[in-house]
Write a protein that binds this DNA or RNA. Structure first.
Lengths: 220, 220
DNA sequence: CGCGTATTCTATAGATTAATAGATTAACCA
DNA sequence: TGGTTAATCTATTAATCTATAGAATACGCG
């Protein structure tokens, strides 16, 4: 009796664990934490064949991680609940603290390449209030439009590569992107410094900003 | 280059998801959140054959969820990090909020059977400070000794079944156990009421108390 | 209605994992 | 040293999951 109850409950919770047991699915969830996207976009950004993407999304749907909205022939996916963000965050925290390989990769890519410490969200807020920094959002335009830090300029990495940015060189530039493991802001900082800017990257991205209950601006 | 980086990171994070993708492993983690236990005890309490238990523990060890300590011929397992508790909590929160089956089971077993609302930890603290309740810990004795709410009496459910408890009937009794899905406190409340006590169960258990950074007493 | 596009559903081979029995190791004790 | 107990490791089979191709569905448009 009580055994059947336990088996049911743990079985259900294991469904959630299972949904997070695939690298591809975690990548899809990370992309969705930037805002809703259709299947094609997800497939392209995660570099997964479309059919596989659809299959993974089905698993995520069954575990109630995501919900869908149909718009014409396109189906848009979005995270179902703030609790999903909390869970992803808890998973990444544990990975960061306990898995040597994660620690190693983040050290190598996200810290030591940067001679300066990356900016925390708290520092970022303070610097913005004091008004002597330019904050840029280097994610693709659609992610900026789906939600961004108020006052940040949209400067997608692709644009930054093509043409010189129109920002004063007097102010320090801070670039943010998808989160602590996103490489866009790293690359942006590298480009900006080459062009004579003082630039740093933010350690966290929009999902963390949103999770801190800070205001998020929408549209262009 | 960036793809290899992503694959490595998401692959590592998926290891963590995978460790949580099995009902048995989640049950073992729940047991370990009560305090350290040896393999034999874990196998008995989770009703899993010893060899399977050992195999599951190996998976948990490789994902760095747990650490071990050897004492003579016994190997004691414990959770490796507070981040593990956070992750388990986030998983259960999501399950509670999103999975209909979980909602249904908890409604059926943990609320409607109880004519009175279960007590939250916050209420429990207030009632204890006012001093007009008896708080009992109905988990097995070893879990009480590994950590309990200060001021709570150890009254394992097995003892409560055998002999009448020695507590004043004038005060209300509040029983707590392992967490929101633990049935010990339900059963304890049923027994106590049959014997003429005013009794309620706490909605959460020791892991939640600990996660709230409240003080925990150790020993008898 | 018929056609094109986006997506899902169905089926299946190949890879991965779980359960479990037998052999092995680690510590303790006589 | 040999016996005993707790736990792990190795190997095998059964079950499950992933990737993926082909068929089917849903919607918009002319």
């Amino acid at each position: 009796m009580s055994r059947a109850l336990k088996d049911t409950l743990y079985g259900q919770f294991a469904r959630i664990g299972h949904a997070m047991a695939s690298p591809k699915r975690l990548e899809l969830l990370d992309l969705l934490s930037q805002g809703e996207k259709d299947v094609e976009t997800l497939a392209a950004q995660a570099a997964i064949p479309l059919k596989n993407t659809s299959a993974h999304l089905r698993v995520l749907r069954q575990a109630r991680f995501v919900e869908t909205r149909r718009d014409g022939t396109y189906v848009h996916y979005r995270l179902a609940d703030d609790a999903v963000l909390d869970l992803l965050h808890a998973l990444q925290q544990l990975g960061q603290r306990r898995l040597a390989e994660v620690e190693q990769v983040t050290q190598l890519f996200f810290t030591s390449r940067d001679e300066l410490q990356p900016v925390t969200l708290q520092e970022l807020r303070r610097l913005m209030q004091e008004g002597d920094v330019t904050v840029i959002d280097v994610r693709p335009r659609d992610e900026y439009e789906a939600g961004h830090i108020p006052g940040a300029l949209s400067v997608p990495l692709t644009e930054l590569k093509d043409r010189p940015p129109r920002m004063p060189k007097s102010k320090e530039v801070i670039a943010y992107c998808r989160g602590p493991y996103c490489v866009y802001s790293l690359e942006a900082v590298r480009l900006l410094r080459k062009r004579g800017y003082r630039a740093r990257r933010a350690q966290e991205g929009l999902p963390e900003w949103r999770a801190s209950k800070l205001p998020v601006a929408v549209g262009s």
